[in-house]
């Protein structure tokens, strides 16, 4: 689960960089970068953090 989160977080970065090659319009790039940012945040908060919370020390 944590590994998937790491991959998703990195994928967000890749999407943002890909915006440079996929379109030359500023708004098009803006949309792609925002999508990339959202993906990375889902990776950190939605996947990695959730995985750690599942096995948190204070639950035991």
């Amino acid at each position: 689960m944590v590994l998937a989160g790491v991959v998703i977080t990195f994928l967000g970065f890749v999407i943002s960089v890909m915006s440079l090659g996929m379109t030359s319009s500023v708004s098009g790039r803006m949309v792609m970068v925002l999508i990339g940012l959202a993906v990375s945040l889902v990776g950190i908060i939605g996947v990695i953090n959730r995985a750690f919370l599942k096995n948190a020390l204070w639950r035991k």
Partner: peptide, 25 residues
């Protein structure tokens, strides 16, 4: 200049997507 904001957001995406990932590993 909206283009400047895009450049900054790419920087933010790099920080969250690359720097965090690298540090985490």
């Amino acid at each position: 200049d909206a283009g400047q904001l895009v450049a900054q957001l790419i920087g933010v995406a790099t920080l969250i997507g690359f720097v965090f990932t690298f540090s985490f590993v």
